[in-house]
């Protein structure tokens, strides 16, 4: 239906400058961990997010997910300034991929928390292991009905 696009596009087209400002504002928290995003980094992440949503056939209301990913991942000892923006881009892609693969059964906050836990404690900072092994395991657990939710909220900020 041709009507759909014109209602949906305002939902996905947040003003670029506002989005950049939102991401750069996370520096207040991340710089405590030695991580800073430039405006250029922010743009790169925004593009990665938009591309991931398009590829995964999803539509997002607002811009909260990236904020949440940054806030939860910036304390990770396995992320350093050199690959900070790239890592966030890959985490954002993995996040939307998982939203589809987990059949909408995990809320945003829970999924980000699980990803962080696996990233630090099982993959020791390897994004390849996270996406290629751990998240696939999680998907299989959910699809076979053996996922019982997360149990530990200690590290959430």
């Amino acid at each position: 239906m041709s009507n759909i696009a014109r209602f949906i596009s305002p939902l996905v087209t947040t003003s670029r400058q506002r989005a950049i400002n939102t991401l750069v504002s996370t520096n207040r928290l991340s710089q405590r961990h030695g991580l800073v995003l430039t405006e250029e980094d922010a743009l790169q992440i925004i593009d990665a997010r938009n591309e991931a949503l398009k590829t995964m056939g999803r539509l997002e209301v607002g811009f909260e997910v990236i904020n949440k990913i940054i806030r939860l991942f910036c304390p990770s000892p396995y992320i350093n300034q050199t690959d900070y923006a790239n890592t966030i881009c890959e985490l954002v892609e993995a996040f939307y991929y998982m939203k589809n693969e987990t059949l909408e059964q995990i809320g945003d906050d829970d999924l980000i928390y699980i990803m962080r836990d696996l990233f630090d404690n099982r993959c020791f900072g390897s994004i390849e292991l996270l996406t290629g092994r751990e998240l696939e395991k999680l998907t299989a657990q959910i699809r076979s009905g053996h996922y019982y939710g997360r149990h530990n909220d200690e590290e959430e900020e």
């Binding site: 759909i4 949503l53 056939g57 999803r58 945003d108």
Partner: peptide, 15 residues
């Protein structure tokens, strides 16, 4: 719990 949904769901909700 989720700020994103599959596009088909959004279309359906709009309908």
């Amino acid at each position: 719990e989720s700020s994103s949904v599959p596009v088909e769901i959004a279309e359906n909700l709009l309908q």
